[in-house]
């Protein structure tokens, strides 16, 4: 079951690399949040434990409702144009993503022969990390950077579940808090920058260099 959900997660990554609308990113974030919650809730369903539910529920709340709503609010408040500003063609970006994923899956498969890990969640998580970095590298809009960063965090999360079957609770909560703070700060930063610089391109941030 975890493998199926991980593959769905990978598909969402393909979608995010081809869409050209900011709204698409937000939708993907929501989908990924749901998938991640499902992945970590599965082991706790059959021998039902209330403690096992707490973390997925928090994850669902934060990743599916709070953060996307907050990003939507920023988009509305600041009246950002609804298309992303890619620096390379969408098609070449997709090719890059596919190539990266192939390499990662092959490498993970080789790795799995010597160490014990779930190949598919591991590779999906790793892909999400790299693709999150790609999104930050090849998009010009600051709000898309936030989304890329969140995808990267999702990747780390999935990666963690693949490596250790049961992460310590505190670490997971720490991850959540981390994400929340980052989004919060970036939201504030964008608000501030939009009032002073009158633009949302990272290129404009270059002028802030010391």
């Amino acid at each position: 079951m975890g493998n199926v959900l991980s593959i769905l997660f990978c598909l969402s990554l393909f979608y995010v690399s081809i869409t050209s609308r900011v709204k698409g990113y937000v939708t993907v974030l929501q989908i990924q949040g749901v998938l991640l919650s499902l992945i970590i809730v599965i082991p706790f369903i059959y021998p039902f434990s209330i403690y096992g539910i707490i973390l997925p529920a928090t994850l669902l709340l934060v990743k599916v409702f709070l953060i996307p709503r907050y990003i939507n609010k920023i988009i509305l408040d600041l009246d950002i144009r609804r298309v992303i500003d890619p620096t390379i063609q969408q098609f070449s970006f997709l090719l890059l993503v596919i190539a990266t994923m192939v390499v990662i899956f092959v490498v993970s498969n080789i790795l799995s022969q010597s160490t014990e890990l779930n190949v598919i969640p591991f590779a999906s998580g790793f892909s999400a990390i790299v693709i999150g970095i790609y999104i930050i590298m090849f998009r010009r809009k600051l709000i898309v950077h936030v989304a890329g960063f969140l995808i990267l965090e999702n990747g780390i999360f999935l990666f963690g579940t693949a490596v250790a079957s049961e992460l310590p609770m505190m670490i997971e909560l720490g991850t959540l808090l981390d994400v929340f703070v980052v989004v919060f700060l970036m939201g504030i930063a964008i608000n501030k920058i939009s009032t002073t610089l009158d633009g949302f391109d990272v290129t404009a941030l270059g002028r802030l260099k010391d």
Binding site: I136, V202, L205, R207
Partner: peptide
């Protein structure tokens, strides 16, 4: 000046 280079 651009953060994207550092990410790269």
């Amino acid at each position: 000046t651009d953060i994207r280079y550092y990410i790269a």
